[in-house]
Structure formats: structure tokens, C-alpha cells
Design a protein around this nucleic acid. Structure first.
Length: 229
DNA sequence: CACCAGGCAAGTA
DNA sequence: TACTTGCATGGT
């Protein structure tokens, strides 16, 4: 009765998601994310950028680098109150100082201060462990899984939600996991692909897919049934 | 001046 | 479960 409907629909979504990726990579080229020189810096940046413009995060990262605090064993014994002042430009600085310390606790407690050991845990276990840290939610955890550990996990952020909505690929009431499945059930589980796709969505969101639509010049204009991948 | 930015947790109903 | 609110700086 109802079986022939689900598969063709799923196939159509798959083609549209791949078409969007093709158009983005052709328009903007590889983004080479995450901006950061070490796995630990990626993790710190993932927390600092929560609901915050990356340009503000850069100032905070620069301050941390000056104090040589982008090493977990040095950050671990640095006073939280002083840390808050250093990351002040990133906003929510008291909150984020706590969250950084919570992450440090996970790294130090189980691995003696070695992020590579933490990141070598199997992806499912690592995700659960990160989510137990107060201040790390699904997006921050998945950003660490993808950009610091290199696991094939698709990151969903506010830009992604908005773009999916504009293209009628989502209604707006879907959960984080729902949207993550939308990508991961329609695309190969390739960390390089997920890396570029998410970075390209952020790039598009920053420049074209704003809350008040300024779609002028958007490369995804008139992109409804793009065939190729 | 208002609005936005690569969220999350805690509180309320 | 499904909203709502606090957290805060810096750019447009």
C-alpha cells in the first residue's frame, strides 16, 4: 500500500544534498577546516565558538597562545578567573572558562593530559564521554569528533538548519539527530566530505543565507533538481 | 539604535 | 516533551 513512496523520496533528497555540495564546492572551493594547529586547539575553539562569531574567538585564541595555554597540562593548572579574562573577547567568558576546565578534567583524568589518547577512543564511546561534560552538547561533541578526531560524523549547526529550511529539506521542528541522519543516510561516511560540506554550509550561511534573506548572488539560487554528483 | 554570531543548561508548564 | 531564559563581546 505505502511502500513505493518512501524510497523515491529518499532518493530525491540524496540527489539534492549532493547537488548542493557540488554547487558549493564549485563556487567556493575547499575550505580546509578546522582553523587550528592542533587537536587541542580545535577542541578549545569548538567551545569558544558556541553561539559566537569566529572573529571574536580568534582574539581569545591569540591571547591563549601568547600565554602558551594551548597545551592541556598548562591550561589545567591555570586559574579559572584569569582564564576568563583571557577569553573575554569570545563572550560568555565566565561560562566558557568553566566549560574549558570541564573538558580539561576529562582529558587529564582519563589520559594523563594527552588529547590524542582521548581522541583514539571509538567514536560512539568518545561522543558519549564528551556529552557527559557539562558545557559540551551535540554540536560541540560532533565538531570534536569530526575536526579533531577525524571521524565521519556530520555536524549540524544553526546555519545548516537555516539552509535546509530555506531549501525545504527541513520543516524546523526536527531534532539535531534527525538532521544529522538526513545527511549521514544520504551521503557516504567520509570525514573529508563531511568536513568540507559543513565548512561550506557555514561559509554560505555567513555570506548569503542570513536570517533576513539576502539571496542575491547565492550560488544555490534556482537549485532544485541538480542531477550530478 | 537593533540585530546577529559555527550553543548549552536550567527552569517552567 | 516543548518552550523560555541567561550567558556577553564585537561587528554591521
Amino acid at each position: 500500500m505505502k511502500k513505493p513512496d518512501t524510497l523515491p523520496h529518499a532518493k530525491k533528497v540524496e540527489l539534492r544534498l549532493k547537488g548542493i555540495y557540488n554547487r558549493l564546492i564549485q563556487s567556493f572551493g575547499p575550505q580546509n577546516w578546522w582553523p587550528g594547529e592542533s587537536a587541542f586547539e580545535v577542541m578549545v575553539g569548538a567551545i569558544l565558538t558556541q553561539n559566537t562569531a569566529w572573529s571574536n574567538v580568534e582574539k581569545a585564541i591569540t591571547n591563549l597562545k601568547t600565554e602558551k595555554l594551548l597545551e592541556p597540562e598548562r591550561l589545567a593548572c591555570f586559574p579559572k578567573e584569569k582564564l576568563a579574562l583571557l577569553i573575554k573577547p569570545a563572550g560568555y567568558y565566565n561560562l566558557k572558562a568553566d566549560r574549558l576546565m570541564n573538558l580539561i578534567n576529562l582529558i587529564m583524568t582519563d589520559d594523563g593530559g594527552d588529547p590524542p589518547l582521548l581522541l583514539k577512543r571509538p567514536p560512539e564511546q568518545l561522543r558519549q564521554d564528551l556529552l557527559k561534560v557539562k558545557g559540551i552538547g551535540p554540536e560541540t561533541a560532533d565538531s570534536i569528533l569530526l575536526y579533531a578526531a577525524g571521524y565521519p560524523v556530520f555536524v549540524i549547526d544553526a546555519y545548516t538548519r537555516r539552509i535546509l529550511g530555506r531549501h525545504r529539506l527541513a520543516e524546523g521542528n526536527e531534532s539535531y539527530e534527525d538532521l544529522q541522519k538526513l545527511f549521514m543516510e544520504n551521503l557516504p561516511h567520509d570525514p573529508i566530505l563531511y568536513n568540507e560540506y559543513h565548512a561550506l554550509l557555514v561559509h554560505l550561511g555567513k555570506h548569503f543565507c542570513k536570517p533576513t534573506p539576502i539571496c542575491d548572488g547565492c550560488p544555490l539560487e534556482e537549485l532544485e533538481a541538480e542531477p550530478a554528483f
